[in-house]
Design a protein around this nucleic acid. Structure first.
Lengths: 348, 348
DNA sequence: GGCTTTTGCTAAAGCGCTTTAGCAGAGGGC
DNA sequence: GCCCTCTGCTAAAGCGCTTTAGCAAAAGCC
């Protein structure tokens, strides 16, 4: 194995000190640092002649950045089942990275096998290998995030995320407005009793949707009936549930994406409840996996790809140490009108 | 930004030297290295108490490995158009990496915008950040590969790849046998004049298929008519081409996947040539993008995912410095019988 | 008791780079 | 001619870790 070419080799050939080589290569100049054009050329020639390449690890150790951004997902990335969920985010992330000249370090060693993925594991904060990182996923533990914040490690979450101390930088989507918009559409065509159907999970993105639901109702001048906000496990969505909705006078339902949506629709079909004739429906997001029901559902589109891209851009900005702009980015969701909304069938 | 905890901090707390901390953490023991159980515990306690995590860059610099494997694709990875091509490989790679506890460094900075992606770029062989790397893609330049080999950098190609000096480690698929098998099937049902349709590209995987084609013909006792081996650009596949095949008495065609296959099928359809009634057809591989023709084509399946996984395993083995096993892995392709083969219609 | 061996640890070098203080020499101003 | 400034470079420290030679103390052996 041929010995690698090092900075000193270049320095010797060019007849300068290693420091000079470093300065030339990094294009440093300012303050007391000046390199004559002639020397610069000599160094560059030597670099070419020896095919010198910088060792990124050494550079990183010495305090420089190494143009690597980490991507940490709290769930596994590639396995086929998740395929369509992470994919759009990753496309955006990759685009952003390529655009800015960063490499991407995917933390796959985090072992989801043993339950949840962890950042801190077996004595190594693997993220440190990268200049900064983008994090994704719902299962992330707040303690780990808090620790990351405390350590001052630069990272950006894809999606809004909050911790007690310090503010997390993120590129999120405006689920609140998007949800409000959906509910407003429903109210505009006459719905008054609109139910919300979700899971008992409490992540920020879902809390936002619930907030949007309430906000729209209040803004419309109706009071929010808490009993219409259902957060239930999948198996609680049974035929009887439809009866309950009817008895409460519900004429429209907004439902979180993920497992409850397809289940609810199936139950409706089994029970003979026709959408939208008997019940209007809208989904709070766009499904990434194919459901086995017809297209045309009213919903909104989550700008996943753009979120990924913006997250990378924000991270890159954060790494430029003089950044003092926005640390939180919120992107709008596009409303997708479908065919599952119609004025309430009051005669039913 | 709180100062990071370093090895010396742990050492001080545990009342030992930094060297001891390193030894404990890396579980080194052998030769003159011995750590008493009591000391070991003391160190581990200190590690926990301080939440110490190793800096991977420093570790890497100091000569240790850093549990990072690079993934370099000569074409961009994520952009949607390529989506289905790289995906299965990446799934395998990710599985392998997760299984073995490695992280994956995706070289996205390689800038395909400016034409081909390059390993050596702007003074940095970025691959060096990783312990070793897996390379994929057809457009890879031999010079870069040769240089990598010369430098002794450990890497594994996904797919067979050869250079002049030294042997490249790879996890490939046996396209030769797979192609031969397809041709044998054709001969077994009576075909004698079998044409080969491919592109003018000369990558190993395609050369293998052509070799398999010849091998099968020879093994069957027929001589190989070179004029039946067509390597032509897409736009040369015109209706007249079918006339030529017919005039040469061709009754079956094997065709490389990629652009020629769908084009050829379309031309057949336009010309009214029915498959398999008028012409038998088989594809040398399985398409990763959806073609707009019916399924049921006779072909073989490329074990993409397994190739990715094996590539990682091989790479990991290579990194264990005492490895002296196989450096080349060849996986079989599964023959997929379809409905595009039937005995030749000699009456035609 | 004097020798060797074993045990358990540490000192110190070194990985390849970046950074900063500072120095020698040239040039300028009076 | 003296002092000051500017120019162009280098010396040296340091990043946080791993590794190896080697040393002191304890243990074993005759």
């Amino acid at each position: 194995m041929k010995k690698r070419v090092r900075q000193t080799d270049v320095a010797r050939l060019a007849g300068v000190s290693p420091a000079t080589v470093s300065l030339v290569i990094n294009n440093r100049s300012g303050g007391s640092v000046r390199i004559s054009e002639e020397t610069r050329q000599r160094v560059l020639d030597a670099v070419n002649q020896l095919s010198y390449v910088v060792d990124p690890a050494a550079r990183s150790l010495a305090g420089g950045q190494n143009a690597i951004l980490g991507v940490f997902t709290f769930e596994a990335i590639f396995p086929l089942t998740h395929r369509d969920f992470y994919y759009p985010f990753l496309v955006g992330i990759e685009e952003g990275a390529e655009e800015l000249g960063y490499d991407l370090l995917l933390f796959t060693s985090a072992g989801h096998r043993t339950g949840m993925r962890r950042i801190y594991r077996s004595g190594v904060n693997r993220l440190r290998m990268a200049d900064g990182a983008v994090l994704l996923g719902n299962e992330g533990s707040k303690e780990e995030l808090q620790r990351l914040v405390d350590e001052g490690y630069p990272f950006v979450f894809v999606g809004r995320r909050e911790v007690a101390r310090g503010d997390i930088a993120y590129a999120g989507a405006d689920y609140t407005s998007a949800t409000a918009r959906v509910v407003e559409e429903m109210m505009a065509i006459g719905h008054r009793r609109i139910a919300y159907l979700g899971t008992p999970v409490q992540t920020e993105s879902l809390l936002d949707r619930r907030e949007g639901y309430r906000r729209a109702l209040r803004a419309g001048g109706y009071d929010v009936d808490p009993s219409l906000l259902y957060l239930c496990a999948d198996d609680e969505i049974q035929p009887e549930f439809l009866g309950e909705l009817e008895s409460k006078g519900v004429t429209a339902v907004v439902v979180e994406t993920g497992t409850p949506a397809p289940r609810f629709i199936r139950v409706c079909r089994e029970r003979g409840v026709q959408i939208p004739r008997d019940l209007s429906l809208a989904m709070l997001g766009d499904p990434t996996v194919d459901y086995d029901f017809e297209a045309g559902i009213t919903m909104f589109r989550i700008p996943r790809r753009e979120m990924g891209q913006q997250a990378i851009r924000l991270l890159a900005a954060l790494l430029a140490d003089d950044y003092d702009g926005q640390r939180q980015i919120v992107l709008p969701c596009e409303f997708v009108p479908g065919s599952t909304l119609m004025p309430p069938n009051l005669a039913r």
